[in-house]
Every structure is written in structure tokens, then in C-alpha cells.
Design a protein around this nucleic acid. Structure first.
Lengths: 358, 358
DNA sequence: CTGAAAGCGCTAACAG
DNA sequence: CTGTTAGCGCTTTCAG
């Protein structure tokens, strides 16, 4: 069993290579500098000697002089949420392609944790991608003053942002429901502090106006399956024939809650989610949902960050907007007659006594 | 818009603090050393001056002299797989608690990528947790010689390992199916290279022996929903009444594929999965599955790694084993008569319900 | 293109 | 407990 108390074997340094190749340390340094601006045969020979000695440039020492670590931080709100998998991978691959390493920080939905983690990491990274940050705009701007920062899924003034086309996604959902004969859409809200939540509701208001569909909002609820189930309870008191949920998890909770109450989805109620997570395809009925290009989000944000790190100005004007699309499955259907639609409230409630009020 | 071409404001160094507090740099250094072994009033004053100057110790410079970065790497096979969310969080929180930062590496199921990423990162971290590594034992041992390494979900000789109690999980599943009257279990295998896949099959062989249940294996299939659907196809030719799948994803694919073929789950076939991912609770019928303590896995592996980093020997004897439990839902039921069970192959396939369009 | 010299910010030996 | 003196491994002037 190896003893790790002290570094087992000292790695070859630039001096070892220099001695072996009979050149000065600077020459070795130059042979490994990036972009490799040296192509002399000496440099080539140095590289071969280095290879033979198993020399690897020490990123820490390099960082100390260049103040560039070739690491970036990716902060996500909740690693448990599958939407971040695509973002992480997009960011990671983009970073890796440019030989950057990604430090992942899971904020666990906590403003405080997020700040603390960033504060500790900031000096070690060349830049930060903030995906669905829970911090205040001013806190974000403060960090952005010290390091290049790109914000994802949120618009923050004076900081470069990447968002998906929420208005268009909501619009497409509303159109879809309208075509199915629904003249009223209930928005089941997610966390009040969530930026997408706000814009989705506002977009629905707008779409409702244009498409002559009435809209209303219930909530906020937690953006989870349980949250959706609680929303289903509330819907019992104020029925609807068409529901747009803040995200897939809530939509799934709604389906589950309503089904348990004896309400048929989509027969009695059509439900649309947001995100197109894997679960949307697993639940019964399959969930109609607005798909966001997660991989592209992570990738775009990171690419932008990298150009800023390389010295680009970092255009902080309006956010970069990524397209979305509506994925139609089986949780949406033509509206039944108004009478029938109303009926489900009167269905005998499934074994759940707590739910009868007035 | 801030210009990030050069670091905007030089941060205060140890020298600035020393000058301001009228002490030597070493005194400042000591005031910030860990564990803070200095409690003199001088040290306290130094800290206050530092606070006022906004001084933060530069981890890079510190690392250069101590060769300790207080960072660890966590390598996972596939960030898309929800199984890793819990592991990541467990690892992260444990690391954070000891003020370590976690670098997440997504190997994307690729041996090559995994190696490359580790090679680039190794010198920057104090230790590595390898969760479901796809590398060869010898490659892992090679890394383990250079840095403390803990392996998760796999047993590698001479390297500390953390695994879940696969034999017990399989045994519980087999007992459960046996109690339901099943005398034959088909194992639907995952990737051949996967260590858990091997041990699960071997455990099933053993359990079958003891419980007098016949077992057989089909596959390997890809450990995804699609893989499970393909397995369902294969089951058509060689029907079964009880199936143990390598993981939940495959089990869900099986449910979906069989259902589409007109086979009733659990009426005709009982299905058990592995992992107890969120999806197991979403699919219809709810999936009976072996639950693993992901958070605890990540946490235990990291805790062990940290003790090794602090100089502990790193007991590489037998792996540390974490308990599992069987979560019974609705995908398993009492076996029908043998005749009935055979029948399902001849059912006409239902129309494909998964017709997506955008 | 190459070499010499100076230092990035911090810690680790020593003395006192 | 504190100060002094050397570096950690690399990059970066500045000369040649």
C-alpha cells in the first residue's frame, strides 16, 4: 500500500529537462508555452527530452506567474435536477475542447452556499458560468467585476447572459392548447425567486392577450413532483381544462395528483410542462412539454466565457437567446364540452379526506 | 462593461498586510495557517488588518509551496445518469465541510476521455474519487500510485474501495420474487465492462442456488431505456415471468417494450430494477427496485479520501460495503399459471404510443 | 532564437 | 512567539 504522506516521487521539473537537453530553463519554458510560438528544432528536441523524462508542466506554478489557471467554475442551482446534466456536459465539453478544466459547484438552491462557494473558488478560476443563480443581481454584478462571468437562464443587466426563448416556448404551448379548443389556461407557478418563472407567466399573459385565451395563475409551489401534487389539490377547488406548469416535475406531480383524484389527463385536463426532461417521456400519459437545448446552453455560455477570458469585451447588451420547441405527447387533447369539463370537481374524491372545503 | 483583459484590481498580498500591521510576512502567514496554531493578540490584530485590506490568501501560491491544493477530483462515468447526482452531492458536501473544493469530471462512458481528463487534472488535486470508473484495474492502480485514490462501485485490488451490497440487494429481489411464486428469474444484463453488472449476475446465480430458483441471463444491452426496449424484443422469443434488470433505466425500457407488445406488467411479467432512481416512481406501474444509498456512497468515499490525504494509511483491504434495501412498488406480482404466462408472446403488438412530433 | 536574472505570493526552515 | 532567509516551478523582462 503506497504511503501518501509525502508526494511519492518528485516529478521532473523544467530544470531537469533543461539540464538533460543542455539548454536554459527559459528555452524549455518556451517550448511548452502556448500558443506554441516556437518551432525551432531545439524546441522539438526539448519536447522529446521532456517526454522521455515524463515531464509535465506544473499548472500551479504556471498559474502563479501568469495568473491564469485554465479552470472555470460552473455553478448550478441543484445537481439533483436533471436539466443541469445537459448544461454541465455542454459546458464541460466546450471547456475541455479549449483545454480548460471545469469546477462544478452545486449551490443546493441556497443563496448563502452559492456565495460562499464562489468566494472560495473565485481566485482559482479564470471565469465563472452562473447557471440559474439564486443570488441577487447586485451580488452577481459584484462577482462580475472581479472575474469574467456569464449568466445562464437569467437576464442580469451589465452582465453577459444566455437564456432560452421562454416567450416563444410559452407562445407555442398556448397556441397548441388554443388549437385544441382551450380558451382558458392556468399557469402553475414555480418559485417566486426564479427568473424563468416570472418571464413564463408574463409571456403567458401576453400570449393570452394575443390569442384571446384567458389566463390565470396559481401558486407558487415548489418546483418538484410534490409541488405539482399540491397544485393538483388546489386545482380541485378551482378547476381548469388546460394547465401550463413551470416545469416537468411539477407537471408530473399534477398528472399524478389529478389522476389520483379521478380526473382524466388529458380527457378532462390538458397539461403542458417545461424542460422536456427524460421523465416527461416516462410518465403516463407522455408529457407535452417545451424543450430547451440544455447542451447548447451550457456550451454557448462557456464559449462566451472563454472568449471573455481571452480578452474579448464580453458583450453585455441584450442576452443571447437560444431557441426552444414544443414536444407534443399525450398529456394534451381536445377540450371536451364545458359541462363535461366542469364535472371532474364533483367526482368522488379518492381516499383523501383532507381535501373537502366548502 | 468591465474590461477583463487584465486582472482589474490587484488583490492585497501578504506583504501589504505585513507592512500595514507592522509585522513580518511570516507572521501574517502564520496568522492564516491551518490549523490556526497561533492565537496571540498579534495574530488577531493581523487578521483584522487583513480583513480591512480585503486580503485573501492566494491558494495557488500556497499550493506551490505546500503541494496541497485542497481540491479533489470526482470522476463519474456519465453525468446524464441520475444515479450520480446523489453521489456528487454526497462527495461535494463532505468535501466542502472540510473546506475542500471538488472538481467534477464527466468521463462520458469513455475510457480514453477519463484517462485524459485525469491526467490533466491530477497534478492540481490532492486526491481522486473514481465513481464507476471505466478504466482498467491497472490504469487505476497507476493513478493510485501518484495520488490518493478511492474507487466507488467497484472493487480494485490494492486500492481503497466503497461498494454497495449488491449480493444482498440481488438476494432480496430474488426472495421477493420467490415469495410471489416465481421459480425462474431472467437477468437482463448491462454493459459487460461494468463491475456491478458482473457481481449482480454472480449474486443472482448464488441466490438462485440457495433459493432453488432457476436463473438465466440475456444481453448484454446498453444500460438505457432503449437497451431495455431491445431486451423486451429478445424476451419475446424467450418469455419469462420474472425479470431482474441491471438498472432502472433498462427496467423501464422493459416495461415500456413489453407493454407495447401487449404484455401485462406485472400480470404476465414481474420486473425488478436497480438503483431506485426518481424515474422508478414515475413510470407506470411503479418499479420495484433495489435502492442504493447514493449520497452515502459519495460521502463515504470522499471522507475516506480525505483521511488518506491527511496522511492516513488508506486501508485497501476489503471494500467498504454500504447497505441496500428493496423498494417494492407495483411492477412485481404473484405469478399466474404457467400456461397463462406463456401466452403473452402471441398477443398482437399494440400500436406504438410514443409517436412524438415537434 | 536563446540565455541570464528577477520575481509571482506564499511557506518552511532556521535562529533569536 | 517572531523575524530572516531561501526557495516552490514557472514565466518574463531584458540583453545578446
Amino acid at each position: 500500500m503506497p504511503d501518501h504522506t509525502r508526494p511519492p516521487d518528485k516529478r521532473a521539473t523544467i530544470y531537469d529537462v533543461a539540464a538533460e537537453a543542455d539548454v536554459s530553463p527559459s528555452t524549455v519554458s518556451r517550448a511548452f508555452s502556448r500558443p506554441s510560438r516556437v518551432n525551432s528544432e531545439t524546441a522539438e528536441r526539448v519536447r522529446q527530452v521532456a517526454e522521455r523524462l515524463g515531464y509535465r508542466t506544473n499548472p500551479l506554478a504556471r498559474a502563479l506567474t501568469t495568473s491564469r489557471t485554465r479552470m472555470i467554475a460552473l455553478v448550478i442551482a441543484d445537481i439533483t435536477n436533471p436539466v443541469y446534466a445537459g448544461i454541465v456536459r455542454g459546458a464541460q465539453e466546450t471547456a475541455m475542447h479549449d483545454e480548460y478544466t471545469t469546477v462544478l459547484i452545486d449551490a443546493q438552491e441556497s443563496d448563502r452556499l452559492e456565495r460562499a462557494a464562489i468566494e472560495r473558488t473565485m481566485s482559482t478560476v479564470d471565469g465563472i458560468v452562473l447557471a440559474s443563480s439564486r443570488m441577487s443581481d447586485s451580488a452577481i454584478r459584484m462577482f462580475a467585476k472581479q472575474r469574467p462571468v456569464v449568466v445562464l437562464n437569467r437576464a442580469v443587466a451589465d452582465v453577459p447572459c444566455v437564456v432560452t426563448d421562454n416567450p416563444r416556448g410559452v407562445r407555442r404551448a398556448a397556441e397548441h392548447l388554443g388549437e385544441l379548443g382551450h380558451d382558458h389556461i392556468t399557469y402553475v407557478a414555480g418559485p417566486q425567486a426564479s427568473w424563468p418563472n416570472g418571464i413564463r407567466w408574463r409571456s403567458l399573459l401576453e400570449a393570452g392577450m394575443e390569442l384571446e385565451i384567458k389566463v390565470r395563475q396559481i401558486g407558487p409551489f415548489s418546483p418538484t413532483i410534490e409541488g405539482g401534487e399540491r397544485a393538483a389539490e388546489e386545482l380541485r377547488a378551482r378547476p381548469a381544462t388546460a394547465v401550463l406548469a413551470f416545469n416537468d416535475q411539477m407537471a408530473i406531480g399534477l398528472i399524478r395528483g389529478l389522476t389520483r383524484m379521478g380526473v382524466d389527463v388529458p380527457g378532462d385536463v390538458s397539461i403542458v410542462g417545461f424542460d422536456n426532461t427524460l421523465a416527461a417521456d416516462i410518465v403516463t400519459p407522455g408529457l407535452t412539454t417545451v424543450a430547451a437545448p440544455f447542451y447548447a446552453e451550457g456550451s454557448a455560455a462557456t464559449r462566451h466565457l472563454l472568449t471573455m477570458i481571452e480578452g474579448a469585451p464580453g458583450h453585455a447588451g441584450r442576452p443571447m437567446v437560444l431557441p426552444v420547441r414544443l414536444v407534443v405527447r399525450h398529456s394534451t387533447a381536445a377540450r371536451r364540452s364545458a359541462g363535461r369539463a366542469r364535472q371532474w370537481v364533483r367526482q368522488p374524491p379518492a381516499p383523501d379526506p383532507a381535501a373537502h372545503r366548502s
